[in-house]
């Protein structure tokens, strides 16, 4: 049971990884790669050995699929948008748009047409990715295993993580894009000199230029850490919350294989945790959007 549980958890935490294995690599099933080629990882060890040139097909697939779904729905609503009385889905989309628009107006004081659509995309996309957490943990992986074995694969290698935001690649992808925009707009608004000044002349600032020169490295060190901490905290906050949430779902799911009484308890716990998680996923999506707005607003502020 213990080994089984560990395997179950590990299986749930491994991504479906597609990457390149070098020639001469001994795979988990004992075969040796004749030449380097792209293949699906059979174990998490293989996935790790693939290095940077590997893709998490599940995370990326669900992420792009959900993003495309939401963009398609929004696009349809936008195409049919009337200035008359809005109905049905248009109403819903307009509520979202208005909510995001108000949040941006409150938090962002510059003039940049990209911030509002960016915030809308982040909020809805992150929410959708988080929402996958509420799908019972075993349904889609089991279906995938079934399909995988029907297609001739080993079901033990059929990894499927359906919550993209429990993959640090996904959250880092979002936060690094935001970080790139922060740097870009900082330099565009304040100039390269202004940006460097922001990094080196605070928090220690004195009138005397010689003493200031001494403070520049200290300031640069502190401000760089503060700057780099932004995208990392942004990504890790979302990842950490979702990963922990997913982990608890998996742990509770272990109860299902521990007899009727514990199974029922597990069902109740799953339900309770899911209800609580509705709050978490919405809040995390909102926090990600809000911090993006705040960071970009800071990038636009000229001192």
């Amino acid at each position: 049971m213990a080994g089984n549980s560990t395997e179950y958890i590990k299986h749930h935490l491994t991504n479906l990884t597609y990457g390149e294995l070098p020639a001469g690599y001994e795979r988990a099933d004992g075969t040796v790669m004749a030449e380097s080629s792209w293949t699906l990882a059979q174990t998490s060890q293989e996935a790790a050995d693939m290095g940077f040139m590997a893709l998490h097909l599940d995370s990326l697939g669900w992420s792009i699929g959900l993003g495309a779904l939401i963009m398609f729905l929004f696009w349809r609503a936008a195409k049919k948008a009337t200035t008359g009385i809005p109905t049905g889905f248009q109403n819903f989309v307009e509520i979202l748009v208005e909510f995001v628009d108000n949040t941006v107006k409150e938090g962002f004081h510059g003039r940049n047409p990209i911030v509002a659509p960016l915030s809308l995309t982040i909020f809805c996309w992150v929410f959708m990715m988080n929402l996958m957490d509420l799908v019972p943990v075993d349904i889609i992986p089991k279906l995938f295993e079934l399909g995988f074995s029907l297609a001739g694969g080993d079901p033990h290698h059929a990894y499927m993580k359906i919550v993209p935001s429990t993959d640090p690649n996904i959250t880092m992808g979002l936060s690094l894009t935001v970080f790139a925009m922060m740097i870009y707009y900082s330099i565009r608004v304040k100039g390269i000199g202004g940006f460097m000044g922001e990094l080196t002349l605070h928090p220690f600032n004195v009138k005397n230029p010689f003493i200031q020169a001494l403070f520049v490295p200290v300031n640069f060190f502190l401000e760089s850490i503060a700057l780099i901490a932004k995208p990392i905290s942004l990504a890790l906050r979302l990842f950490g919350n979702m990963y922990a949430g997913e982990m608890i779902f998996i742990l509770i799911a272990l109860l299902f294989s521990a007899g009727l009484a514990l199974g029922l308890l597990g069902g109740v716990l799953q339900w309770a945790w899911a209800v609580f998680h509705i709050l978490v996923i919405t809040l995390q999506a909102f926090i990600f959007m809000m911090l993006t707005i705040v960071y970009l607003s800071m990038a636009h502020e000229d001192h």
Binding site: G19, M53, A54, L55, H56, L60, S63, N169, G173
Partner: peptide, 13 residues
Amino acid sequence: NINATLIGQIIAF
């Protein structure tokens, strides 16, 4: 693992 998924996500974003 941190891998090219990151790049894919950035492009998709």
